[in-house]
Design a protein around this nucleic acid. Sequence first.
DNA 1: TAGATTGTTAATCGATTAACAATC
DNA 2: TAGATTGTTAATCGATTAACAATC
Lengths: 218, 218
Amino acid sequence: MAKSDKISMSVIRRLPRYYRFLSELQSEGVMRISSKQLAAKMRLTASQVRQDFNCFGGFGQQGYGYSVEQLKNEIESILGLGEPKTAVLVGAGNLGRAVAAHMAFEPKGITLAGIFDRNERLIGATLRNVKIENTDMLESFCKRRRPNLAILCVPKDAAQNICRRLYSLGIRYYWNFSHYDVAADYPDVVVENVHMSDSLMTLCYRISDDIEAKRRSE
Amino acid sequence: MAKSDKISMSVIRRLPRYYRFLSELQSEGVMRISSKQLAAKMRLTASQVRQDFNCFGGFGQQGYGYSVEQLKNEIESILGLGEPKTAVLVGAGNLGRAVAAHMAFEPKGITLAGIFDRNERLIGATLRNVKIENTDMLESFCKRRRPNLAILCVPKDAAQNICRRLYSLGIRYYWNFSHYDVAADYPDVVVENVHMSDSLMTLCYRISDDIEAKRRSE
DNA sequence: TAGATTGTTAATCGATTAACAATC
DNA sequence: TAGATTGTTAATCGATTAACAATC
């Protein structure tokens, strides 16, 4: 299924977007699509689309294009969405609750098995049929359920402590919403950061750049 | 202050991260830093650090390095964090409430002036001293407060409709958490997307790739 | 078969890294 | 002055785009 060379991060980060567009096309009943059409929809070049897919193998057919369903399934398999994973979420503040309630975990093969917070007022509440527990219970929970993935929705200072515990409990995969630099302390883990404030600052730059450009062109 | 060539997106997306590290260094009382030290801390190369800063001008001093405070202030100014902006947030579900409650808007020059939702049960509640209003009030609000930035925390289907209205009210800057492709319909706007589920799928890929690599090396 | 579109190689473009003279 | 470190140019590396033969 895979050509098994090392895939570049640029390509990997485009895969979820391909997957989204293909899911959409499929739900619209589109059966096949050419690299040219898909590229136009996603504002890429047809060359890039073909190069990207050919990192993993030839999914298309000359003169025809790609089967939407097959291509979507291939990418689903490349992303490993079918492989079951168990997640623990730490931090049930506004952000943690939003992630717990909002995110489509099941289609990615993820079971959210535990939610933890140290705030007594949150403990006992239920999100997605998961009861928020006291962070003290993290060790016993992990020994019982063996999650392989942790979602960090605690502030930076708490994250350092939580991470030390999670790491010693054997967790090596992190979805990190905090500003704590997990990979700096644990070089052997896989961390995917979501830095919302970086995104907002980037927007700030682009706004002030745009305003300046308009001012200049007047 | 600026060299005013076109700055590449790669550089722009690193600026918030520089800003975060410099803020941290400053709060730790560090007065100066060399490109080599900063690069080590951020896992970049010293070359890249210097190239990045020199897009905007020479902020350092040979034989000495960079003044943390001055450099931080320069980047703050490049990002335009000091320029006042008014934001309207649409969608006060879990995600919208998390963004409203969690995000540090003030340090970026952003005033969150209005929050809107169509869910009657949410209307009237207060977040950060802003009352959630009915989405029907969007037009009158925008005519009164003239926000220049919209934060989209509604589902994809709602986003299309909301965007049409916001666009016609003159809003050109969007922080988009939905899967609606704003830029496809309005090519003249500046959109910064936060696709949390793409990030999670990227993590899924990296997990299954890591597991596979470990299996192979056994 | 003719037309369309892929898979893949080659060319281009841009971003990162290395090197070093300038200079504090 | 000697040592350190920048700013900047040149070299390398990687990613994107273009081209085209293969083939459905």
